[in-house]
């Protein structure tokens, strides 16, 4: 019970994620089959749809943009600040900060992770691991989007009695960039909204907000 409470945030998002993916699979199958019937083709099962490039590209194009959003947010907030926003660090803390502030090397504590106590490549890797993993997940998801997208696009092109295209032609096609950019713009707008709205608006008790009574000018304060 205590374990559930201590991990409730991750568990809640995991459960909502699974329900959302399952819902996407069912709704996607119904929509796909609607088109199949219109094209004189046979309907597919949910499992067949989940294994299709049509489902894979829809999943991957959303994943890549989410990981891009977090990669940019994690890395850019090292160097860029926003006065009054709890999403920003304090205005005088711009940059990678000192070893003392980051509790690394000689300033590591007994509780510090082992890679924070060493020097060299391992320390550099661990010091940037969140941004690196988010960036890597973005690139892998984007690559998956391009591979699944080419397959889904070519299937559609053949269905329209057109020639299929190569991967190179696909990743420079309007279809690929339309899928990518429509996701990127929404993620960037969501971050912009969060950074700016959190200057003036509050959510009592949330660490994503400043304390309700905090000044609009207070920066890097989370309640």
């Amino acid at each position: 019970m205590r374990w559930l409470k201590e991990n409730s945030l991750a568990l809640a998002f995991l459960i909502m994620f699974l329900f959302a993916v399952a819902g996407q699979a069912v709704a996607g199958t119904l929509e796909f089959n609607d088109q199949q019937r219109a094209d004189g083709a046979e309907p597919v099962s949910v499992l067949q749809y989940v294994a299709s490039s049509a489902f894979a590209v829809n999943v991957a194009e959303n994943w890549q943009s989410e990981y891009l959003q977090f990669f940019l947010f994690v890395v850019l907030t090292v160097w860029l600040v926003q006065k009054g926003s709890p999403e920003s660090k304090k205005l005088d803390s711009i940059g990678a900060e000192s070893d003392h502030q980051q509790q690394i090397g000689a300033h590591a504590t007994t509780q510090s992770p082992s890679w924070a106590k060493v020097k060299g490549l391992r320390l550099w890797l661990y010091s940037n691991s969140l941004g690196l993993v988010m960036g890597l997940l973005f690139l892998l998801s984007w690559l998956a989007q391009s591979v699944a997208g080419q397959a889904a696009y070519n299937s559609e092109r053949l269905s329209d009695l057109r020639d299929p295209v190569t991967w190179g032609a696909y990743v420079t096609s309007p279809e690929f960039w339309d899928r990518s950019l429509q996701n990127w713009q929404s993620e960037l707008l969501a971050v912009l909204s969060m950074v700016v709205l959190s200057i003036y608006l509050r959510q009592r008790g949330s660490p994503e907000s400043k304390p309700v009574g905090a000044s609009h000018l207070a920066t890097g304060v989370e309640g």
Partner: peptide, 23 residues
């Protein structure tokens, strides 16, 4: 021959044919 999903295009010397995979 190009196969993508359940669609295929077969180019022959004298024709191009489009096919669909049914059950």
């Amino acid at each position: 021959v190009s196969v993508w999903g359940d669609e295929a295009q077969v180019r022959l010397a004298g024709d191009t044919i489009f096919l669909h995979r049914f059950s």
